[in-house]
Amino acid sequence: MSELGIVYALLGAAVAVLLSGTGSAIGVGIAGQAAAGVVTEDPSKFAKVLIIQLLPGTQGLYGLLIGFITLSKIGVLGGGLADLDVQTGLLILAACLPIGVVGLLSAIAQGKTAASAIGIVAKKPDQFGKAMLFPAMVETYAILALLISFLSVTGIQV
């Protein structure tokens, strides 16, 4: 049994959760600042700006999902660690990278877009639907990364 294999696989799970979680925290933080600014002046817009603020939070959930699947796959959650060689460990690490890296960057970008969209709601609350679409477009790329990470992690034979 190569101990390095399981280390690489665990590193993959950590990368997926850490990077996407950090991205979401920053993104939600940026959007939250904008939301707080609007609610300071107009508390009636709380529900609308809260929904937009939460949009960059999804990357963190995607990272968690991939991390969870990875941990299950390598037996960390089910008890009985899988016997992984270095190559398989590295494969799992590589499979986790898309959601980690794309999750980090897309969540920050989405946070900034959400802050701008909150500006739309502040001035024209009736345009909430359109305002939601702009940050939602960024989500597309996080979903693509999630898809690739999911297919890769589940496709690797342990």
Binding site: Q33, V38, E41, A115
Partner: peptide
């Protein structure tokens, strides 16, 4: 993140611009 230090202020100004 230094370029986001005006995020709160600008959002508040956006709300005030309606008046």
């Amino acid at each position: 993140m230094s370029n986001t230090k005006y995020t709160y202020a600008v959002a508040r100004i956006r709300a005030l611009e309606t008046s």
